[in-house]
Amino acid sequence: MSDAHHDHESAIRTPKQLAAAVIGFFLVTVLGIILLVQYVTQEKLGGAGSNALTAEATAVRLKPVADEGFTLKDANAPKVLQTGEAIYTSTCVACHGAGVAGAPKTGDAGAWGARLAQGYDTVVKHAIEGIRAMPAKGGNPDLDDIEVARAVVFMSNQSGAKFKEPEVPAPAAAPAAEGAAPAEAPAAAEPPKA
């Protein structure tokens, strides 16, 4: 029976040989992975994002956000007044389209009747200053009083009134005032005579 155990002898007989075999196995595995990675990545592949460092792609990334869909407004330019319908669509329809918070619906003559009976000036005053749940200028402080009045006329006329669209006041004569100021300046700059 002792002869039967000698038939299946292993090449590894000591713990040092076992350690060397395990380390060798891991080294061969790691070397195989490294060679496989080098083989796969040896060829340059063109894929999504491969042009990320080009001048055009960099310029697109650095472009200001304001250039995308925003219109810059010159604060010193004269204001262009919007129509009553445009103001209604952008500001007033949120409440007056559905009757939110007790707002009279546009086109509902019954709801507007009592308000219109107060007269044009009162209705416009309430729209500009605000009343009950309605904020001043419908919550849009950028609106001019003329624009608010135009929106009131639009809604009122849709609801049975016959108001006339407000006229835009003529701009003040600013150039005449500018011409008068320099004429006064030299007189003040003269030294007093002794």
Score class of each variant (00 low, 15 high):
P192N: 11
P78D: 12
K162H: 06
N157F: 00
T71G: 10
I34V: 14
V80L: 05
E147C: 02
R13D: 10
E184K: 12
G138V: 00
G138T: 06
A48L: 12
H126D: 15
A133K: 14
G138H: 02
A181L: 15
F163D: 02
R13P: 03
I33G: 14
F154K: 04
D142C: 03
E9I: 01
V40N: 10
P64A: 10
V22Y: 13
Q42K: 10
A185I: 13
A151W: 00
D108S: 11
L45C: 13
G139R: 01
G110Y: 03
A101E: 15
N76P: 05
A176F: 15
E56K: 01
Q42E: 07
V148P: 00
L72A: 15
T41D: 13
H126G: 09
T58D: 10
Q118V: 05
A66T: 08
K125G: 07
A19S: 09
P15Q: 04
A161L: 04
G99T: 09
L62M: 10
K193C: 03
F25I: 05
I128P: 04
E9R: 06
V30D: 14
A161T: 03
A194W: 10
H5M: 00
Q158D: 04
T54G: 08
L143F: 00
Y120D: 15
V40T: 13
P135M: 01
I87R: 01
S90C: 00
V152L: 05
R115L: 11
G49V: 04
Y39S: 06
T54Q: 07
Q158Y: 06
R115K: 10
W112Q: 09
E68T: 13
M1K: 13
G32D: 12
A188Q: 15
L18E: 15
L27A: 14
P64Y: 03
P104M: 06
E190D: 12
L45P: 13
P166I: 01
V60W: 07
D144E: 11
R61C: 04
G46W: 15
G84D: 07
I87V: 15
V168C: 01
E167F: 01
A170G: 08
A66Y: 05
V60E: 12
P186F: 11
N140T: 03
C92M: 04
K125W: 06
P64D: 10
K193W: 08
G102T: 01
K125R: 12
A185K: 14
N140D: 13
Y39L: 00
V100C: 03
T106A: 07
P192F: 15
A48M: 10
H6A: 14
Y88W: 08
K44V: 07
G160Y: 04
K193Y: 08
D7S: 11
A188N: 15
L36F: 14
P169D: 08
D144S: 10
A77R: 05
P182Q: 09
K16A: 11
L18R: 14
G49I: 08
Q17L: 02
A161K: 02
Q118W: 06
H5W: 10
A173Q: 07
A20T: 06
P141H: 04
R115E: 11
L81R: 04
E85D: 12
H96A: 03
L62I: 05
S159F: 03
N51D: 12
P141Q: 02
G139M: 09
E184F: 07
A20R: 07
E147N: 00
L36W: 14
A77M: 03
L45Y: 15
T89C: 00
A173C: 00
